[in-house]
Design a protein around this nucleic acid. Structure first.
Lengths: 103, 103
DNA sequence: CTCATCGTTCGATGCAACTCGAACGTTAGC
DNA sequence: GCTAACGTTCGAGTTGCATCGAACGATGAG
């Protein structure tokens, strides 16, 4: 597959991150990823409420905002949270969002 | 003046708060309010890069998301952050955003 | 090689958001 | 009252975003 682009930490911008997190579907995806802890979550398992093209779009938004990392594994993709990196770039942000999402 | 509506803490929703914070102009406004500490900031002093109608729109978005409080004082309005209430509803969220905005 | 699976991309659609200027209250002061 | 200052609301224009189905590539299995 063609390798997908992941922004570096310095390229992350706060408005983009907040915008990526402001959509209920994406917030749900991030919540699932967080509760999975490590690296996993094939795309199809992340959200069943939207079509696969819509899901692909949301994963792209999250990836380009720097929130998730996607790597290929055979015919499917594994998506994971860039939790440690985000903590370094925007300390406490993801943690507080994840805390708030469980309400 | 007709009193404006402010949502109660229970009515605040995370996606709305994140969306309100995802716009650079509004993020700038929130940053100014935070650096002011207490209650002040007449609307006109918050942002000079947009027209007054646009500024009014952004302040409405912030207010309806539960991020700011607006009260009338004669011919102008005083806007303040609902910092303590937000901390209670979404612990750590506003603090981490304010920390990230100073970058 | 062929085929099924998984995900991306494309094109289109509908809706929401940002922006502005103009017009409209509201209020304070004269 | 009249006027000036401040902010909101309205109408309009432009843009961006979420969503879907269909078509396309890439990969592993048989």
């Amino acid at each position: 597959m063609r390798s997908v682009h992941h922004p570096t930490l310095d390229d992350l911008r706060l408005p983009d991150v907040l915008h990526a997190l402001s959509d209920p579907v994406r917030l749900d995806i991030v919540g699932h990823l967080a509760s999975a802890g490590g690296e996993e979550c094939a795309c199809g398992a992340l959200c069943t409420s939207v079509s696969k093209s819509t899901l692909s779009h949301h994963l792209k938004v999250l990836r380009e905002a720097g929130i998730t990392r996607t790597r290929a594994n055979g015919t499917h993709r594994l998506v994971s949270l860039r939790e440690d990196e985000l903590e370094q770039r925007f300390p406490g942000l993801l943690g507080s969002v994840l805390g708030a999402v469980r309400t």
